[in-house]
Amino acid sequence: MTASKPMDSAAPTVSVIGASGYSGAELTRLLQRHQGVKLQHLYAFSQAGKRADDLYPATGCPMTYLPYEGGTQSDIYFLALPHGEAHSLVPALAAAGKKVIDLSGDFRLKSTQEHEAFYGSKKPAEAVMTYAMPELFKEEIASATTVSNPGCYATSIILALAPLFRGAGGMPKVNSVACTAISGLSGAGRSSKTELSFAEMSENVRAYKVGKHQHTPEIMQALGTSSTDPSFAFTFTPMIGSLVRGIYSTLTLSLDSPAEAQAIRARYAEFYQGAPFVRVRNEMTEVRHVAHTNFCDIHIPDSGRSSSLVVISAIDNLLKGAAGQAVQNMNIMLGLDERTGLL
Results as ranks from 00 to 15, higher is better:
A144E: 04
A11M: 07
T72P: 03
A269L: 09
Q40P: 02
M220N: 06
L319D: 01
I315A: 03
I157Y: 03
T293P: 01
A19S: 10
E69F: 05
Y22N: 11
I76V: 15
M201D: 07
P91R: 10
Q221A: 08
K98V: 06
P57H: 03
Y248L: 12
L253Y: 03
A199Q: 12
R206I: 08
R305H: 09
D106W: 01
G36D: 02
F236C: 02
A269C: 12
A117L: 14
V210H: 11
T237A: 11
F271T: 03
S227L: 13
S257A: 13
Q73I: 09
L109M: 11
A94I: 15
L27P: 01
S227K: 06
H34R: 10
Y272T: 07
A222H: 00
Y153V: 08
L109T: 05
T180M: 12
T130M: 08
G246R: 02
I312S: 02
A178K: 14
A314L: 08
M63R: 00
A263I: 14
R108D: 10
A188I: 03
E126H: 13
P67C: 07
K138Q: 15
L161D: 04
D297W: 06
A259T: 14
G36I: 07
I157T: 03
A291Q: 08
Q221H: 02
Q262F: 10
N331A: 13
L55A: 10
A11Y: 00
L103K: 03
P172W: 06
I315T: 07
G335D: 14
H115S: 13
S88P: 08
A80I: 00
T13A: 06
N317W: 01
F271E: 06
D256E: 08
G274H: 13
A117R: 12
Y22D: 02
I17R: 01
L161F: 04
T59F: 01
S197T: 12
Y65F: 15
P163E: 05
N282T: 11
T72K: 06
A144T: 07
A86W: 04
P12F: 01
V37R: 01
H87N: 10
R288W: 09
S104R: 05
L27M: 05
S192P: 03
R279C: 09
F78Q: 00
A125C: 09
A233V: 14
A58L: 09
L185P: 01
T59M: 01
